[in-house]
Structures are given as structure tokens and as C-alpha cells.
């Protein structure tokens, strides 16, 4: 565990907490894409299938449980909670997320480190995580009216990805035989997807204005 990895995990955790805060206290999920949240729930479910069979550390297991629990509970809130579900931008959140899942599954079947059930699903989760933010970014673009919490949520998620890249660079130079092209390329693609959002986020922060995306 290095400082970049820890910083990445903590920003990831913070992003989830910000989203839960918005849902729990304001009882609103306005501007949040259910499609993206469902994709994250699938990402964690397929990646952490090994939670019972491979033990790394108490930290890892605890974090896995937190990410699994929070992603599924966010989906539950947005779909079934009587107040929260009414604030969901159903008509705007129309990204067909099934069209992301199939190519990711095919790619995982073709390109992986090992052809085993767990490894293919692990790889699928990497590919899917890379593109899971897309419905959220499309929704932002459509509604254009972004509240602070939603903006912070996406900013923190992007920060998490940035720190993970630093973590890989650090591990590459400090650990022998640490080479994971699939993880790195998927992670890089994922981080690049945030670039545009980051640009406008910093612009609004610099000018001390409310975040607004161009049409």
C-alpha cells in the first residue's frame, strides 16, 4: 500500500459518501444517473466475486464490502425509496447501458490475463468501470444544471482514477514484475473520460462560479 493508492481509495470512498449524503439528507438524486449507478453495482459485484475465496487484508475486504453495500443501496434508493425516486431525472437518463455491457463482456472474453471464470469477470469489471461514467456525463450534459454535491461526486471519482494511475506508476518502479497492461489501459481510458468535465470544473472553481457545462 502506497500513499497514492490510499489517496485513491479515500477519494473513492469520499465520492460514495458525498452521494449517500445527498440521497440521505437532501432526499434527492436529481442529476444522478441511475444507469451509471447500476453499472457500478455490476462492476463491484463482478470484481469482488472473490471476496470469500481470496483474502488480501482486512482493509481490502472492508473496502470491498463498503463499495458493494453502498453501490447496491444507492441503486435501491433511486429505484424504490418513495421520496428519492421522485427526484430521479428518468426522462433525461436514457443512455442504453446494456450497449456498454455487451462489448465489455466480449472484450473480456477476448482480451484477459488468464482464461478462467473469475479472471474474465474481473477483466469485464475493469472494462465496464472504464465506461460506466458515460451515462452520468451524458445526463450532466443534458440537464446542465449541476448542484454542488453532484459536481463534487464526479470530481472525487475522477480524482480517485488519477491517484490510481500514480499508484500504478509507483508500483511499476518499486515492485518487480508488476506489469498489468489491461488494468492500466482501461484505467487510462476511464480517467481520460473525465478530462472534459475536469476542465469545466476547474474553470468554474477558478472563476468562483457555479459549474455549468456548455450545450
Amino acid at each position: 500500500m502506497n500513499i497514492f493508492r490510499l489517496a485513491g481509495d479515500m477519494t473513492h470512498l469520499a465520492s460514495v459518501l458525498v452521494l449517500l449524503l445527498k440521497i440521505h439528507t437532501i432526499k434527492s438524486c436529481a442529476g444522478v444517473s441511475l444507469k451509471t449507478q447500476e453499472l457500478y453495482a455490476i462492476v463491484f459485484a463482478t470484481r469482488y466475486l472473490d471476496i470469500l475465496t481470496s483474502f488480501v487484508s482486512i482493509y481490502n475486504t472492508l473496502m470491498k464490502l463498503i463499495f458493494l453495500g453502498s453501490s447496491f443501496s444507492i441503486v435501491w434508493y433511486m429505484k424504490y425509496h418513495k421520496t428519492v425516486r421522485r427526484t430521479y431525472d428518468r426522462d433525461q437518463d436514457t443512455f442504453r447501458h446494456w450497449f456498454l455491457m455487451l462489448p465489455c463482456l466480449l472484450l473480456a472474453l477476448l482480451i484477459h490475463e488468464k482464461f478462467t471464470f473469475f479472471e474474465v469477470l474481473w477483466t469485464f469489471s475493469l472494462y465496464l468501470e472504464a465506461v460506466a461514467i458515460l451515462p452520468q456525463l451524458v445526463l450532466l450534459q443534458r440537464t446542465r444544471n449541476i448542484d454542488n454535491l453532484t459536481g463534487q461526486y464526479i470530481f472525487l471519482l475522477g480524482g480517485y482514477r488519477g491517484f490510481y494511475i500514480l499508484n500504478w506508476i509507483y508500483r511499476y518502479f518499486t515492485e518487480p514484475h508488476y506489469v498489468h497492461w489491461i488494468t492500466w489501459i482501461a484505467g487510462l481510458v476511464q480517467t481520460l473520460l473525465y478530462a472534459d468535465f475536469f476542465y469545466y470544473y476547474f474553470l468554474s472553481w477558478k472563476n468562483n462560479k457555479k459549474l455549468q457545462l456548455p450545450a
Binding site: 472473490d50 481470496s54 499508484n167 508488476y178 488494468t183
Partner: peptide
């Protein structure tokens, strides 16, 4: 030396 795993990451 065995290959370092990325599976110890989240």
C-alpha cells in the same frame, strides 16, 4: 520471482 498481482487493488 512470482508475478505481482493487481488483484490486491480495489
Amino acid at each position: 520471482v512470482t508475478k505481482q498481482s493487481s488483484h490486491d487493488e480495489l
